[in-house]
């Protein structure tokens, strides 16, 4: 109940910040000095948010598709040879700092949205892949046996049994990826990608804490709402697949 109220408030605050940023002028004024502007106006906050979300959305969708396909591949007989390598790469790869990955994408891609997209994509692969792998390799053998016994083909077993059962865990990986990407995308603005990081960096450069707080607040609210949306999706998919999950 309290959580629901809190989420509604978060959504309302986010909407207000994006659609009528001027109404917060007095809220942010105490954070500024020397008559610096309290609200970032160079680019509208709404537009930055949309392009931020678009960047994250594209990257997360791409990494989810590739990572789930990869996870399915290495758990099939044809791809089993890649399993040990894939496991090691996921555990080692996740220690790579996202900022370093982003910085390394710049020499290859130049400045702008490109390197950010590539870095978010590469970094986002690992949590989804790891969860897909875990989910697909820990399915109850009795269920798989029953599906085989019913005469389902391999393809049918994958689409009708394995993937639906694995979906909640896969979605948890996507959630992790989405939340990490949302925060990492702000750093993309250091290489000239249009994201909410632009507001924060403008604040850092002009020593205006109001901008820093604005950019941080909007990104934080987005993260909370996206996290929550995915959790709903996860429990919905768990219910649909007939898995009983403690709430």
């Amino acid at each position: 109940m309290i959580a629901k109220l809190f989420l509604t408030l978060a959504a309302a605050l986010l909407a207000a910040l994006l659609f009528t940023p001027e109404s917060f002028t007095e809220v942010f004024r105490p954070l500024t000095h020397n008559n610096a502007p309290p609200i970032y106006l160079q680019t509208s906050l709404l537009r930055l948010t949309l392009s931020h979300l678009a960047l994250v959305g594209i990257a997360v969708t791409a990494s989810t598709l590739v990572a789930v396909a990869g996870g399915v591949l290495v758990t099939r007989p044809a791809g089993r040879e890649f399993l040990p390598l894939a496991r090691t790469i996921t555990s080692v790869g996740q220690t790579f700092p996202p900022v370093a990955v982003l910085a390394l994408a710049v020499p290859a891609m130049g400045f702008g949205a490109g390197p950010t997209l590539v870095a978010l994509f590469l970094y986002g692969l690992l949590p989804v892949f790891e969860n897909t792998l875990t989910a697909l390799s820990t399915l109850p053998p009795s269920v798989l046996e029953a599906a085989r016994g019913m005469g389902l083909t391999r393809r049918q077993r994958l689409w009708q049994v394995e993937l639906p059962l694995a979906l909640p865990v896969i979605l948890a990986g996507v959630r992790l990826t989405a939340v990490i990407s949302l925060a990492t995308a702000t750093i993309g603005s250091t290489v000239a990608a249009k994201t909410l990081g632009e507001v924060i960096i403008a604040g850092l450069l002009s020593a205006n804490p109001a901008f820093v707080v604005q950019g941080g607040l909007i990104t934080g609210l987005l993260a909370i709402l996206i996290y929550e949306a995915f959790q709903r999706l996860e429990s919905w998919s768990a219910h649909r697949a007939g898995l009983i999950r403690p709430q």
Binding site: L31, A183, T186, G197, I200, V212, V213, G215, G220
Partner: peptide
């Protein structure tokens, strides 16, 4: 948990003032 949702760039920035 809420602290974790603040993007690193903003958290670093806000520590300065």
């Amino acid at each position: 948990n809420m602290l974790q949702t603040i993007p690193s760039l903003a958290l670093f920035g806000i520590m300065i003032p």
